[in-house]
Design a protein around this nucleic acid. Structure first.
Lengths: 128, 128
DNA sequence: CGGTATCCTGGGCGATACTG
DNA sequence: CAGTATCGCCCAGGATACCG
């Protein structure tokens, strides 16, 4: 693959091949919940606040997402010395920097949602 | 949620809530294989060429990815009048426009892969 | 409040075989 | 060449219950 996503010839030959190191990273990064959690964490938030803001995410799945984001160095988990216990999640600089490309993707999605829906309907209605 | 990913107040209140129309779209868009296929389709390519360039993708999964991309209006499927049959896939303008945000995300991933790996190791080695 | 623990089920995915 | 068809595993994720 030459010039994958305009990165120049250097990254070219290995990009997206099965053993490219960026591929497993992409698996970790490019999922729906990661994007949404980082969106919410524009400012620090606590577990149930995140859960409420997202809506439709189960406790289990949200916990898993947060753990993975933490493991990947995107967010920080801080136990608050309150009673009962509180836990605050916040972005690390790394996570903050990811919000930019995510923002591009998200705004693209918003801009083209209706067009995509039209394509889907046309596809589903066509014979065959 | 205010000012989700810097889109301004208009998109704010509905962004990422359970019934936000952009959410199912995001499901369709933000997956690994979509990103990789669109990368390969920088120029038109045939089925087995895509498969070879990606590496590690099964026929079945690639077919499904291509179908979904086609259904979403990202790519076009053209049967070539050759013998035996050939099928060429190419980007639509919509798909082409998606390559830009994907490119941002991909280059971010490449730039930060090593840092992420370090975070993962630190996380895995820490007690508890 | 912010989680684990446990059970359960759909479907994602690989492997393999077959076809126009 | 570019797919469908079929089987079977596995596990992401929902539901529910319990806990420090």
């Amino acid at each position: 693959m030459r010039d994958t996503y305009g990165l120049g010839a250097a990254a070219a030959d290995t990009a997206f091949s099965a053993d490219c190191p960026s591929r497993p990273i992409l698996d970790q990064i490019a999922d729906k919940w990661s994007m949404m959690v980082l969106a919410v964490l524009e400012r620090p938030a606590r577990f149930n606040e995140i859960k409420r803001r997202l809506g439709g995410v189960t406790q289990r799945v949200l916990t898993q997402s947060l753990r993975r984001l933490e493991r990947n160095g995107m967010i920080e988990r801080r136990v608050l010395p309150t009673s009962p216990v509180g836990v605050e999640y916040s972005l690390t600089p790394l996570g903050e920097s990811l919000r930019e490309p995510f923002g591009h993707l998200y705004s693209w999605t918003v801009r083209h949602s209706e067009e995509i829906l039209r394509h889907q309907q046309a596809f589903d209605e066509r014979p065959g």
